[in-house]
Nucleic acid binder design. Structure first.
Length: 194
DNA sequence: AAGAAGAGCAACCGCATCCCG
DNA sequence: GCGGGATGCGGTTGCTCTTCT
């Protein structure tokens, strides 16, 4: 039986209060994003580190855009999803001010439906107009519907671009993706915390 | 006006991987 | 090289708000 990450009985769960948000913001503005595991105690929060991290990344970060996705953003998500599959963090990395959670939710609630309405299978990387995006997957994963993107694990410090992406993938994509900037270097959020 | 159903989103969970001693 | 804790990710859940009947 696996231990839950936060066993403490006195940790809060559920929605965050304004006071909690403020504590987290204050702490990070003073000390920066550091050790999430010890942050809650240091910041006086009854939350687990994971929860703090998620709250900060998805909701409190000052550089977040929020609000509706634009058509260009939506288009980009569709293209990137065709290329990367459900690698939401990578997709979000190409959309300034958007988080992986936001992109994932938007995909599941909006784009998915649109694609279905258009008769496209959102689980399959579909061919986009004038591109051959998605073509590679059919031969790669014959029995599953969802695109199985290459394993980018380890991209905590990863710069994924045409040169450094997993070799098998970059070989395939570089010849079939004419209109997407594949310089997937993850940009750190432009947070002025200094 | 009230209840049901659906949609959207915030948050949690569990796993994989990283990192450091 | 190994083990354990920390971190990050994707999938899923469940709450809240809106729309429909």
């Amino acid at each position: 039986m696996r231990k839950p990450c936060c066993e403490k009985k006195d940790t809060n769960k559920g929605a965050w209060s304004r006071q909690e948000d403020q504590k987290l913001i204050d702490y990070i503005q003073k000390h920066g994003e550091g050790c999430w595991s010890s942050l809650p105690q240091a910041a006086g929060l009854r939350r687990c580190g994971k929860s703090c991290r998620l709250r900060w990344i998805n909701y409190l970060r000052p550089d977040l855009k929020r609000g509706n996705f634009g058509e260009d953003e939506e288009d980009l998500i569709i293209k990137l999803h065709a290329l990367l599959g459900n690698r939401w963090s990578l997709i979000a990395g190409r959309l300034p001010g958007r988080t992986d959670n936001e992109v994932k939710n938007y995909w599941n609630s909006h784009i998915r439906k649109k694609l279905i309405q258009r008769g496209l299978d959102p689980n399959k990387p579909h061919r986009l107009r004038n591109t051959s995006i998605g073509a590679r997957k059919s031969s790669e994963s014959p029995n599953d519907q969802a695109p199985k993107p290459v394993n980018f694990h380890g991209y905590k410090n990863l710069k994924v671009n045409n040169d450094t992406a997993t070799s098998s993938d970059s070989n395939k994509t570089s010849t079939t993706l004419p209109d997407i900037n594949l310089d997937l270097t993850l940009c750190t959020p432009a947070i002025a915390l200094a």
